[in-house]
């Protein structure tokens, strides 16, 4: 099975970092996602939005990466929002019980609106 090489893009919007993973989150290249978030956390950002619109699939390795980000944010009392998730992704997170540990929004803007109105 050939899949697109995984890559990550990101941007800062106010006090929140928005991360755009792209491709199948299934191998070590997913570490770039953890690193990208780490860079923002290192700069004092505590609100991270992960926009999954370009990532439909995830496997156990990807889940592990996501756990790492959730843990890093938890350690600084930060917030993780996940948006634009495919059904496969949300079903998987639901089944694994991850939904309680993240905020889920249909689209990126909803998450940004929410974070704006919320004091951190």
């Amino acid at each position: 099975m050939k899949s697109v090489q995984f890559s990550v893009a990101s941007r800062l919007e106010g006090a929140a970092a928005i991360i755009y993973p792209k491709g199948y989150l299934n191998n070590l290249s997913g570490e770039s996602l953890v690193i990208e978030c780490g860079v923002y956390i290192g700069k004092g950002i505590t609100k991270i939005v992960v926009n999954f619109s370009e990532t439909d699939l995830i496997n156990s390795i990807g889940i592990s990466m996501l756990l790492q980000i959730m843990e890093d944010l938890r350690n600084i009392n930060g917030t993780i929002c996940c948006t634009n998730m495919s059904k496969f992704l949300s079903d998987t997170f639901e089944m694994l019980g991850l939904m309680q540990h993240m905020l889920v929004f249909p689209v990126e803007n909803d998450a940004l609106e929410y974070l704006k109105t919320r004091k951190s």
Partner: peptide, 12 residues
């Protein structure tokens, strides 16, 4: 390292 990620991802 991949093996460890698979395991931590499987057992959360």
């Amino acid at each position: 390292q991949s093996v460890l990620y698979v395991i931590t991802g499987t057992f959360l």
